[in-house]
Design a protein around this nucleic acid. Structure first.
Lengths: 208, 208
DNA sequence: TTGTTTTGTAGTATAAAGTCTACAATTACG
DNA sequence: CGTAATTGTAGACTTTATACTACAAAACAA
């Protein structure tokens, strides 16, 4: 049982490792603290499963997932997230994640998730499964909001956390006008007029 | 060595526990998953230190901290947070926390923090310490939530409803710079940094 | 496979917001 | 009652944000 664990929080890594070791006493669990490390280690080991946080500094977990999908198409990747939120889950699953579970999962449930993805099945954290199902159903109906691209979503998150355009530009190493462009596209797609709408939306949907 | 650990994420609790057990093999580490449990357990045990997440469902970690301060004035409480944010840290320390550390702390550093608060000293996560120090030094920040004047409150309401400075100026028939001045005063008085903070506050307190 | 839309990125010019400063009117405080 | 702090208001100047435009690369559709 060889597991690669990626999360920027040392405490979370330690917790995961412990939970996994409790279940698989002879398992080999290795940690990475960021996406680069994750990619590197993913390539030079034959893991049974990868468990990765969705949001990490630098290149995000999603991007890493993308890469891994290219080089190891069948390697199960379980995405962990702080946010039991559809937005994130859908994105993760679209990027080829085998499962999505929130960090407030009881550890039995985590073990469960790992077991499922090992057998090639998908796992979705219970609190989400239901609302996700309805949402996918609704997707057939005329949808008021167009889906944001990944980059747009990055910007969306930062904006709704109250970051300014220039802070975001800094953070993502892009020009401020680029961020403005993203912002404008986000507003159009989501039918908002101001950042305040955006923040309100994010708060009401517990995205932040 | 008796430690009470509170966090709504099972994984984080597990990680903390493990880190502490590595350091104090004969320690007695107990977990709570929410603020109620924390308060209850805090009262019926004689702990050496409490480590608690700042944001948990139900009553927040801060509120719990407040309670604990009343009944156990000398018991060290170390606040953990996902956000290495001044806003949170200041609030935590004002509420009587012995320390504030972000969850991305390396575990040696966490152990360090625990050691410090055990000896009655304060601990602040390194990434924050500096900016916090300068901020406190500047003494620019008056007490939070100072009363707003009537005019300021008018502006506050409009801002938190997402109106722009120029809209407000229009609305109140004042110059835009006047509104900017009010806004600046509001931010200082309420210890906010951005409009986003303001909107968040308004939403959380059901002011809009 | 080719044409079309979407996405990622940015420049230029303009509009808006923010900072710093100021000052009279009002209010609170010793 | 007199002095210090707060409030209402705004100008000048600096920094940021936004609209409009553009274009290559990628994704998608026919």
């Amino acid at each position: 049982m060889k597991v690669l664990v990626a999360d920027d929080h040392a405490i979370v890594r330690k917790g995961l490792k412990q939970i996994l070791l409790d279940e698989y006493p002879f398992g080999e669990i290795e940690e990475c603290a960021n996406a680069e490390e994750l990619l590197q280690k993913a390539n030079n080991g034959k893991w049974d499963v990868i468990i990765s946080d969705i949001s990490m500094p630098g290149r995000s977990g999603l991007e890493a997932l993308h890469q891994i999908r290219l080089s190891h198409p069948r390697l199960p990747v379980l995405i962990l997230s702080m946010h039991p939120e559809e937005q994130y889950a859908i994105r993760a699953l679209k990027a080829g994640a085998s499962g999505y579970c929130s960090k407030d999962l009881a550890h039995e449930e985590l073990v469960n998730a790992v077991r499922r993805v090992l057998t090639g099945k998908k796992y979705i954290t219970p609190t989400l499964a239901e609302s996700l199902a309805t949402q996918l159903e609704e997707e057939k109906q005329p949808e008021p909001y167009k889906r944001l691209s990944d980059r747009e979503f990055d910007v969306f998150k930062l904006l709704s956390a109250g970051k300014s355009v220039s802070e975001i530009a800094d953070n993502l190493s892009l020009s401020t006008t680029t961020i403005s462009t993203y912002r404008a596209r986000i507003l159009v797609k989501m039918n908002f007029k101001t950042n305040a709408d955006l923040i309100r939306y994010a708060l009401e949907n517990k995205l932040i």
